[in-house]
Design a protein around this nucleic acid. Structure first.
Length: 713
RNA sequence: GCAGGCGUGGUGGAAUGGUAGACACGCAGGGCUUAGGACCCUGUUCCCCUCAUACGGGAGUGAAGGUUCAACUCCUUUCGCCUGCACCA
């Protein structure tokens, strides 16, 4: 028998699947649509790394399972190719972002295809393509028309390295999400999306979403809804969630930005009617509540610290249930700043006219194409590189036809990805971003897989955009995704992979050496998908040994296929186990069950029937699609394993054939299963049990059929 | 500080109230081989008993309590680690 040659077999089937279009779904005619989405990657210089392989394989196995269960699974793929992520790579290597991105995409496609996923390559989406970003700009215009996009001067986050402003969500521990540079504040006029209008809805809808709980919690914390009261202390309104402590309020503190900061000296506490001093201190934040608090040193540690510092009285007053002021709700969530002073993004489709002010670009003029320019370096002076290209920005006012200037900022890359799930099923439509009928049929996304790092970035924005489009009447649903599964992070030898550490693992060499099927199995065997995993080279070599063994064993069985019953029970157990595991993505235990099956039939004397082999191969096909297709061809000659029906688990005797005998809860022996009387008699006869029973009174006998008998002495 | 999660062999992990450590990795011993690799077999939580093996016994899931016939699993306290948010009033 041939040795397992992954190179030939994987190339052969990838070619055949492409020719036979087995992964292309008929979007129009599909009867049981299932939209299985994986967060599309941004093309980087390094190419795909094993973290991508891990996440996409996890999603792919789920998609394959749904397909076997009879769904028309649509599993698209694309590139988040606009934005700082890709542009920074281009800048680093000194290549024009357009040229670099095109090249990187080709590399990504090669790598993704090599994984053997059931991706539908006929409907890719590339966010930097004018065909796509025409509609990103269209979405901006709809937001503007709906009053959800506005321009305002604000003290915003600015990254000195990326030379652009950033949204709150893109600042992690006061550092830039992309380059980890300390972010500064700048007073600038920028475009914002009014996401705060949806704060309550974003929060409330979380309850009905079947999403990884951790993600929902992170979103909840980020929205940060807080209910309290706004209370007048003279001219100053303070915000508090602890009205009951008002009798202990011995001073008022304003944030340094408060309009009355430095002006008001004293105010009257409305509860005690006493005159109390007003201070200004940085520990009171502008952005929370009213920017003013009542200082209650007896009940608040920070107020106490301030009181001690300033020698202010600490009054332990009794708590009150009397009501003061009026109800006020505050949020942590801020409006989404979407301007970027960069080159590599969709130009914001707005025109500034000295006569008419800001005017939206008429929809018929979309897209506002991003010109190919030579000087694409970010400038850092508050405007993007396009400001040096009058041939781009000089235009006419759509309202008065007078001379006017285009916005030279581009939009945030998170706007590109905030609606891409809507585009995939409608890529063939030229005149609309997404077709109404198709959208109704295929969306919301049935299963979405991605990283938890997007909890308050992409995953918040794409919910917001869908909600807004729903309210505008463009979508029949407000939530874009029914189920979201957050995978864990893949590390290497216990250390996070990063470019700076130089320990990023590229899947190419492993696919070349061991094959994609082995890589898939190895990645999924590391543990539950949500936990991530630790990449070790020795581990993948071990998995390849098992794959070779499966190849040997199954081929041997195929050569003399007989109607034996060996392995039937294990195959049935495997089918049942897989059904439970796949939903939770505990693929590791399914692989373990497959190993048990193979160990059980490995002996060349064991006769395994066709049905048993088929069950095993169908389960195995989700994990090793190429290898199994090859074996399936040998077994059945014609059809593809990937178009089979998920097998019935058949009859499984859930009750074990032995019963555990316990004395006072400690396991002492096992006896053959049976009814209570038989088991009890057999147990008492067993010398290992009898020696404990002699000379002791049995106070109680607990019998659980097929499982355990416990003698309490 | 607030919220959430996790803690099991040398390692990844399994077991969701009923035989703890499935399945692997690694390691050790043996077989095969000119040799190495590959492959196959055996062993591998700790301690005691034993010349040794078999058999047998005890302890054991971060720690301490509790509930239960029975606890890795449920409850309480505590320690350690991780994640999110945060001078959030």
């Amino acid at each position: 028998m041939d040795k397992y040659d992954h190179k030939t077999i994987e190339a052969k089937w990838q070619r055949k699947w492409e020719e036979n279009k087995i992964n292309v779904v008929d979007i129009e005619k599909a009867k049981k649509p299932f939209y299985n989405l994986w967060m599309f990657p941004y093309p980087s210089a390094e190419g795909l790394h094993v973290g991508h392989a891990f996440a996409s394989t996890a999603a792919d196995i789920y998609g394959r399972y749904k397909k076997l269960c009879g769904y028309d699974v649509f599993q698209p793929i694309g590139y988040d190719s606009f934005g700082i992520h890709s542009e920074n790579f281009a800048l680093k290597i000194g290549e024009h972002p357009k040229i670099f991105t095109d090249r990187a995409i080709k590399n990504y496609e090669r790598q993704l295809r090599a994984m053997g996923h059931m991706d539908d390559w006929s409907r890719t989406v590339t966010t930097s393509d004018p065909i796509y970003y025409k509609w990103t700009q269209w979405i901006f215009l709809q937001m503007y028309k709906a009053g959800l996009a506005y321009r305002a001067k604000a003290n915003v986050n600015f990254c000195p390295e990326c030379k652009t402003v950033l949204s709150d969500e893109q600042v992690i521990d006061s550092k830039c999400e992309r380059c980890s540079t300390e972010v500064t504040k700048k007073e600038l006029e920028q475009w914002f999306f009014r996401i705060t209008k949806y704060a309550d809805k974003l929060l409330k809808n979380l309850d009905k979403l079947n999403w990884t709980e951790k993600i929902k919690l992170t979103q909840k914390n980020w929205i940060g809804r807080k209910e309290g009261r706004k209370i007048r202390f003279g001219d100053i309104e303070v915000f508090t969630t602890r009205v009951d402590t008002i009798f202990g309020a011995t001073f008022v503190i304003l944030s340094p930005n408060h309009p009355l900061a430095g002006k008001a000296k004293t105010v009257v506490n409305p509860a005690t009617k006493k005159e109390i001093p007003v201070f200004v201190d940085e520990y009171v934040m502008d952005s929370v509540g009213t920017g003013a608090i009542m200082g209650v040193p007896a009940y608040d540690d920070r107020d106490l610290a301030f009181a001690r510092k300033m020698n202010l009285p600490v009054v332990k007053a009794k708590l009150t249930d009397k009501v003061f002021g009026e109800k006020m709700i505050t949020y942590h969530l801020r409006d989404w700043l979407i301007s970027r002073q960069r080159y590599w993004g969709p130009p914001i489709p707005m025109i500034n006219c000295s006569e008419c002010g800001w005017q939206p670009v008429p929809e018929k003029d979309l897209p506002v194409e991003l010109p190919f320019i030579e000087d694409y370096q970010p400038k850092g002076a508050g405007r993007g590189p396009l400001e040096n290209y009058p041939e781009f920005y000089k235009t006419k006012c759509p309202k008065c036809n007078g001379p006017a200037e285009r916005e030279t900022d581009v939009s945030d890359t998170f706007l590109d990805s905030a609606w891409y799930e809507l585009r995939y099923p409608s890529t063939n439509f030229k005149n609309v971003p997404f077709d109404k009928k198709i959208t109704k049929k295929w969306l919301p996304v049935n299963m979405y897989t991605g990283g938890p790092e997007h909890a308050v970035l992409h995953l918040m924005y794409f919910r917001f955009v869908a909600m807004a489009l729903f309210d505008m009447g463009y979508l029949p649903f407000a939530e874009p995704c029914e189920r979201f599964f957050a995978h864990g992070m893949l590390v290497k030898n216990g250390v996070k992979m990063s470019k700076s550490k130089g320990n990023v693992v590229n899947p190419d060499e492993y696919i070349a050496k061991f094959g994609a099927d082995t890589l898939r199995l190895y990645l999924m065997f590391m543990g539950p998908v949500e936990n991530g995993g630790d990449w070790r080279d020795t581990g993948i070599a071990g998995m390849r040994r098992w794959v070779d063994r499966v190849w040997q064993v199954i081929n041997q069985k195929l050569e003399n296929l007989e109607e034996g019953t060996e392995g039937m029970l294990e195959a049935n157990k495997l089918v049942k186990k897989a059904e439970e595991d796949v939903e939770r993505r505990h693929y590791n235990t399914t692989i373990s069950a497959m190993m048990v099956f193979i160990n059980g039939i490995a002996d060349s004397n064991k006769k395994v029937g066709r049905k048993t082999l088929e069950k095993f191969l169908i389960v195995f096909s989700m994990f090793a699609p190429h290898l199994v297709e090859e074996l399936w061809e040998k077994l059945r000659g014609k059809d593809s394993v990937h178009s089979q029906k998920w097998p019935e688990a058949g009859k499984i005797t859930t009750e074990s054939s032995v019963v555990v005998v316990m004395i006072n809860g400690k396991m002492r022996a096992t006896v053959p299963a049976g009814n209570k009387e038989t088991v009890e008699r057999l147990a008492k006869e067993d010398p290992r049990v009898a020696k404990y029973l002699s000379g002791n009174d049995i106070q109680k006998v607990v019998f659980v059929s097929g499982k355990v008998i416990n003698f309490v002495l």
